[in-house]
C-alpha cells in the first residue's frame, strides 16, 4: 500500500518502472514462500524494512547484492539481474539484450 504526494500527477517513468520491479520482486518472494522478514534474514539484513522499501518501488536492489537476492529467491542470478536491469536501466537493457547488430 503506497500513497504519494504525486499520486494525482502522472507518475514519472523511473518511479513507475521501480514500482513494476517491486511488484515483480514481491511476486518472486511469495512464490519462494518467504515473508519479508525471512528474506531479510537470508540477506543478512538487520531489519526487513528495506525489503518493503524495494517492493513498494522506492528502492532498488543494490547491484552488489543482486546475486544474494537471486539465490535467496531461488532465481538464477543472471536471469534475475537481466530482469531487474529491464526496470532499473531500460536503455542499457535494450542495448544489451534487444538491439540486433
Amino acid at each position: 500500500m503506497v500513497r504519494s504526494r504525486q499520486a494525482e500527477k502522472a507518475a514519472p517513468k523511473g518511479m513507475e518502472l521501480r514500482k513494476r520491479a517491486g511488484a515483480w520482486l514481491q511476486e518472486r518472494r511469495k512464490t519462494a514462500g518467504l515473508s519479508q522478514i525471512e528474506l531479510a534474514q537470508r540477506l543478512g539484513l538487520k531489519y526487513y524494512t528495506f525489503i518493503s522499501q524495494v517492493e513498494n518501488g522506492f528502492g532498488r536492489v543494490p547491484s552488489d547484492s543482486m546475486e544474494a537476492w537471486a539465490r535467496a529467491l531461488g532465481v538464477a542470478p543472471a536471469e534475475f539481474t537481466r530482469h531487474l536491469l529491464a526496470f532499473y536501466e531500460p536503455e542499457l537493457h535494450k542495448l544489451l539484450f534487444e538491439v540486433k547488430s
Partner: peptide
C-alpha cells in the same frame, strides 16, 4: 510518499528531485 511493510508498519519515503 508513505507506504507500509507487509506487517503493516508505516514507512515514510523522502524523495529526491524529479524526474527520477
Amino acid at each position: 510518499a508513505v507506504g507500509a511493510t507487509e506487517r503493516g508498519e508505516p514507512q515514510f519515503y523522502l524523495l529526491g528531485p524529479a524526474p527520477e
